[in-house]
């Protein structure tokens, strides 16, 4: 049972991308049903360490506060998760907060997740349309396919799946490292789109290149860490199957 009179939070801080990290502890009065973000907000109104030193408020990312936007992923007591659903009363104290380790730190708990956008660019995980033809009444799509796509569609680009993946390294040179589970699932989502299918081969080509689906080590951590229960390993398996078929087809066509 943690001490119910106070909540103690240790934050791994870092003043900038090239600065050395350091630790600070904060304490606030216990109130029922705090989550990590509402506790951080309370700290922010009067940022004073447990040593009585007045400091700048710890920085973190958040937007919706209801686990839709994916901003507030952080490492809480050693485990990556969303800050808004990390309930204080269910955590051992002191609560230890650290930034994601697989992304460059911007400041304190804020990291640079542009790697995730770069991965989408590499895989062309979108529908290329130039707006020059009439879209008509729109494609038909069976409810079954829609349901499966919806499962892939819940991604909030939080980065939890990359954080736990052994194939992802913080110092991967841009564009060469493993693209990661989130982007692979998005590529599959687009390959299942009635218009997106027309460019499925381009996405598969990209996924057969360096950092593509073959870089997956099958550790299956991603599917465990995903806060939205996206069937990531299933998506990786399906993309693996599609790339294999394409590889064989390419041999004969060549």
């Amino acid at each position: 049972m943690p001490d119910r009179r106070t909540i103690e939070i240790r934050v791994k801080r870092q003043d900038g991308p090239d600065r050395a990290p350091y630790w600070q502890s904060f304490a606030i009065a216990w109130r029922p049903q705090h989550n990590v973000l509402s506790a951080l907000m309370e700290i922010r109104t009067n940022p004073m360490t447990t040593d009585g030193e007045r400091v700048s408020a710890p920085a973190w990312d958040a937007s919706c506060l209801e686990e839709v936007c994916g901003s507030c992923a952080m490492v809480v007591n050693g485990r990556v998760r969303m800050g808004c659903t990390a309930l204080v009363d269910r955590l051992d104290q002191p609560i230890v907060l650290e930034p994601l380790t697989k992304f460059p730190v911007v400041r304190d708990l804020v990291v640079d997740r542009s790697r995730m956008f770069e991965a989408l660019k590499n895989l062309r995980a979108w529908i290329p349309l130039d707006g020059t033809y009439d879209l008509g009444p729109g494609p038909r799509l069976s409810p079954e396919v829609q349901q499966f796509r919806y499962a892939l569609d819940r991604c909030i680009t939080c980065g939890c799946c990359l954080e736990v993946c052994p194939q992802i390294h913080r110092d991967d040179p841009p564009g060469t490292g493993f693209v990661g589970a989130a982007a692979i699932a998005q590529a599959l989502l687009m390959n299942l789109h009635p218009t997106g299918q027309l460019n499925a081969d381009e996405r598969l080509d990209a996924l057969m290149g360096p950092g593509g689906v073959a870089s997956c080590g099958n550790a299956q951590n991603c599917v465990e860490a995903c806060p939205k229960d996206i069937p990531l390993t299933h998506a990786i398996g399906e993309i693996g199957r599609q790339t294999t078929i394409k590889w064989i087809k390419d041999i004969f066509v060549r």
């Binding site: 038909r140 569609d153 989502l189 218009t195």
Partner: peptide, 13 residues
């Protein structure tokens, strides 16, 4: 939708 957005469907798609 043409740009990739997904919507719930009627039984006939």
């Amino acid at each position: 939708e043409a740009w990739g957005a997904l919507f719930d469907r009627t039984p006939d798609g």
